[in-house]
Design a protein around this nucleic acid. Structure first.
Length: 896
RNA sequence: GGGGCCUUAGCUCAGCUGGCUAGAGCGCUACGUUGACAUCGUAGAGGUCACUGGUUCGAGUCCAGUAGGCCCCACCA
């Protein structure tokens, strides 16, 4: 690679376009993200939550994948074999819906094509668009091991799915049966419990009279929210202890409209306090009624087709009506029969399909299920024993609750797109064959067999993701090396769908947790606090953000806004505003490095300069850098990415740029001699290299680009593999920090006074310092020139005592050092006296507080010594400043 | 019905194990084109940390309750 690509003058503004794609290409060309199993000594592994193949990148992806990339890059720089497995999910219903919609545009349905052609069509779609999101992840800078990209429906993963199905079946953990499941009448498939989203709906509660068979003038009243299901009633139930109603148990009622006789039965399920205490029992259309029905051996009459229309088991008048129309008709008919007692408003939760939001229909049907309790037990144990950790911790409660109340998982879907259920039925003898490979014939009778037409829930493949992607069920080197993975980062809403199930599968099939730490990030919201969504049209397109401000700016903004466990808000109507912080920061970094480049010593950037040869300011920035680096490292290790971003930002901007660069400018130009220049140049080089590394996980492009320009570096060098900055503890320098703190305080005080008295910024003024503390003395000894420049001073003089009563502005520092600006032309005596009075008053308040505390015996006795000592220091400092300021004021009074 | 979270500056939010004068960014005010950066610099205004009580030498931080907002789970029709 030649130098020509990057070795040019840096532009005045940072322009990420061009740079980012060039850098990414360079990484890919050297195959930098790939890790070979046989060379991985210390693996750190993340399996990406595979986005749906139908997906286009949204901010939720942006956030989650930034988080993962930060973690991966951090660990890679620390020297670990960081491997990030990418891939996509075939997303059964979602993808099938997309292609069906496409077909609908051509006036076709999937039935027009037939199963085979339809599936082929979906594959075609996947081939064409399925890698869109993968490409978009690259634009964001994600450092996935692209060689390992997997798809939940590829050959290897399909084999894993069949293997798992067969094993669970043989273990008795998969069964088939007729149960009430959640049915989406639009998608026309079964759903898992988790796939039905409960939402409150304003409904009605209908009170309906069922006449007693042997006493036609008398009736009982049942209450229902779904009158149309009465067509499938097969009993009426009361609570066995219900004093009001229990003598009716055993009698019969005439079911209106359907003309069927129903027995009144007693069942504990019924709440005797609710409404009249009678419940109509519809075993085929309600999960509770189903249970009652099984307990009492009731008929299960399903009165609906899969599409939600009434079927032939209902009276002719209702056949073919949609469930809504049927409800209306039933209510009207009951009204005209005088059997509708009343209708009340009723708020209740109704399940909705998580893919198309259609109201779910509880429906009796023959499906395949996984018995979950035996799988949940070890998964729960792992959490309780602390082997599985959640960040933030509170999600552990949610996990525990779900695990302890887990219900069997309906895994069959009446779709065409997905893993075909590996079960074959003999048409002759009814034999059921569950097999890894398609059987040629029935093992019982030798006749032809036919495969179950259904496919598996898409999560039935994703729950195997952490090991199926590594080659399982084969015992591969990848599997040995990279399983278990380390961290999982995802959105809390798929805790049950995916995270919990992966834990179960990992423990069941690999005998080990799939990961040890689960990081659950917040939700991205719009300016009004609403969740960003396609339907609301309030999303922000990450690609547009990258285009406008660069991936680094976006990543920084996202990480910076996403404190652990909190949602983040981004203004979708003001992109510029939303990403300003990150964008401005990239520009700041760019210019900071651009400025330093000509001055950097071409020493070994990675070796901290020897302290003995350094000047105070250099020792100070090295000390600050050591603190920042330790704190960023700690934050990243604890998944507190936000803190890491914040710390690095403050260090670079507020300490490095605002103070260090400003202070050393003159020295870098050689104004203080060669030795001084060298001290600054070597320190600068070490610190710049260091903070570029600290920021690389969050902002990989700009840091990589800038690092290439450092002396002795070329395009062939990269920050990818570290080393991660681990400055020696010896860089911590209390003396330098103390001195520079005082220097900064002095500068701030002078600036403040200048501003208050409206001194022309261009005007150089003098300052007199008296009673300088050792720290300030030390600072001025070496940094006088810097202080003069930053405070806009012409000269700085030290004396033993400030001239008494002379017109000018006064201040006293925390250390007790005094400052005097002899500004006889601008300082108004009256005003200065008033200003001092205000200062004195403020000090008095603080002093009172400190004294009160220290006078309190319980405080001095019970608080830790260190706290008490600090308080004493504070009082001492306050007393000193107080005394000095009062002197000033007194002097003014005399002078007047 | 159960569980969890939130309420801190005009706005968006930090503040982890309780301890110096509660922070950041944006916005606002005043001033500034001193050769890194106007995507900038300097200074400043702005907070009874929702409310009430408790624990403690000490509470934004811990506990209880109140009010408001949000989320998850749940088979009372």
């Amino acid at each position: 690679m030649s130098d020509s690509s990057t070795r040019h003058e840096l532009s005045k503004r940072y322009d990420p376009s061009g740079i980012e794609s060039r850098i990414y290409r360079r990484w890919v060309e050297r195959n930098a993200f790939h890790v070979e199993a046989d060379r991985a000594q210390d693996p750190y592994v993340i399996a990406i939550p595979p986005p749906n193949v139908t997906a286009a990148l949204h901010m939720g992806h942006g956030l989650n994948n930034t988080i993962q990339d930060v973690l991966i890059r951090f660990q890679r720089m620390k020297g670990r074999d960081a491997m990030w497995i990418p891939g996509t999910d075939h997303a059964g219903i979602a993808t099938q819906n997309v292609v069906e919609r496409e077909l609908a545009g051509e006036g076709l349905s999937r039935d027009d094509l037939g199963r085979e052609a339809f599936v082929e069509r979906v594959w075609g779609w996947v081939d064409q668009y399925g890698s869109t999101i993968i490409e978009q992840l690259k634009t964001m800078g994600c450092s996935c091991d692209w060689d390992r990209t997997r798809f939940t429906l590829d050959e290897g993963l399909s084999r894993a799915v069949r293997e798992v199905f067969v094993r669970l079946y043989e273990k008795g953990l998969i069964y088939r049966g007729n149960y009430i499941i959640n049915w989406c009448p639009r998608c026309q498939t079964a759903l898992a419990n988790e796939e039905a989203e409960h939402r409150d709906v304003e409904g009605k509660l209908y009170h309906i009279r069922y006449p007693l068979t042997d006493e036609p003038e008398a009736w009982i009243t049942v209450a229902t929210t779904r009158p149309e299901t009465m067509l499938g009633d097969t009993a009426v139930a009361v609570h066995p202890e219900d004093a009001r109603n229990r003598e009716l148990v055993g009698r019969e009622v005439d079911l209106p409209l359907a003309g069927r006789r129903l027995r009144i039965i007693a069942d504990e399920y019924v709440d005797p306090e609710f409404a009249s205490g009678f419940v109509k029992v519809t075993p085929a259309h309600d999960p509770n009624d189903f249970e009652i029905g099984r307990r009492h051996g009731l008929d299960e009459i399903s009165v609906m087709h899969g599409d939600g229309t009434i079927n032939d088991l209902a009276p002719a008048a209702y056949r073919g009506l949609d469930r809504r129309e049927a409800r209306h008709r039933v209510v009207e008919d009951l009204k005209s029969l005088g059997l509708l007692e009343r209708i009340e408003d009723h708020l209740h939760a109704v399940g909705h399909c998580y893919r198309c939001a259609t109201e779910v229909e509880p429906r009796l049907s023959l499906q395949w299920f996984v018995r979950m309790a035996p799988l949940a037990e070890p998964a729960l144990k792992a959490y309780r024993e602390g082997r599985l950790r959640f960040h933030p911790e509170r999600f552990g409660n949610t996990y525990e609750h779900w695990m302890t109340n887990v219900r069997d998982w309906c895994i069959s879907r009446q779709l065409w797109w997905g893993h075909r259920i590996p079960v074959w039925y003999c048409q002759e003898c009814g034999e059921v064959l569950v097999a890894r490979e398609e059987p040629a014939e029935c093992r019982a009778c030798g006749r032809a067999v036919e495969q179950d037409p259904d496919v598996l829930d898409t999560w039935f493949s994703s729950w195997l993701w952490p090991f199926s992607t590594l080659g399982w069920p084969d015992r591969t080197a990848d599997l040995d090396t990279f399983y278990p993975t380390t961290t999982l980062s995802t959105a809390p809403e798929i805790l049950f769908f995916w995270v919990a199930r992966m834990v179960m599968a990992g423990l069941e099939f690999m005998d080990d947790l799939p990961f040890t730490d689960v990081l659950l990030h917040g939700t991205v919201r719009d300016a009004r606090g609403r969740r960003m969504s396609k339907s609301l049209g309030n999303g922000i397109d990450p690609l547009e953000v990258v285009e406008l401000f660069g991936a680094d700016a976006m990543r920084h903004t996202l990480v910076n806004a996403a404190a652990l466990g909190t949602d983040l808000q981004l203004d979708n109507e003001d992109l510029e505003g939303a990403f300003r912080v990150g964008r401005n920061f990239t520009n700041k970094m760019w210019n900071a490095v651009r400025f330093t480049l000509p001055y950097l010593a071409a020493e070994d950037l990675r070796r901290p300069p020897d302290r003995a040869s350094l000047e105070l300011t250099d020792r100070w920035i090295l000390s600050r850098f050591a603190t920042a680096a330790a704190s960023v490292t700690d934050a990243l290790e604890r998944f507190r990415l936000h803190d890491a971003a914040e710390t690095a930002y403050q260090f670079v901007w507020s300490e490095f740029c605002d103070w260090y660069l400003e202070l050393v400018k003159g020295r870098l130009r050689g104004e203080s001699g060669e030795e001084s220049r060298l001290s600054a140049a070597t320190s600068l080089a070490y610190v710049v290299d260091g903070w570029l590394r600290l920021l690389h996980p969050i902002m990989p492009f700009i840091t990589e680009e800038l690092a290439c320009h450092l002396p002795g570096r070329s395009d062939d060098d990269t920050l990818l593999f570290g080393p991660w900055p681990e400055p020696p503890a010896s860089l911590h320098d209390a003396e330098a920090e103390q001195a520079l703190d005082e220097l900064r305080e002095l500068t701030n005080l002078v600036r403040n006074l200048r501003s208050e008295y409206g001194v022309d910024p261009a005007r150089k003024i003098d300052v007199i310092v008296a009673n300088a503390s050792p720290g300030l003395g030390l600072a001025l000894e070496t940094e006088e020139a810097g202080a003069l420049r930053l405070a806009g001073l012409a000269a700085l003089a030290a004396t033993d005592a400030i001239p008494q009563g002379e017109p000018g502005a006064h201040a006293v520092m925390r250390s007790g050092s005094e400052i005097f600006l002899p500004l006889r032309d601008v300082v108004d005596l009256e005003r200065e006296r008033a200003r001092l009075a205000v200062e004195i008053e403020k000090l008095e308040l603080q002093l009172d507080q400190a004294r009160k505390r220290l006078d309190d015996r319980t405080f001095t006795e019970r608080a830790p010594d260190a706290v008490v000592e600090r308080e004493r220091d504070k009082r001492r400092s306050l007393e000193e400043r107080y005394a000095r300021l009062r002197e000033k004021r007194a002097a003014f009074a005399e002078a007047d």
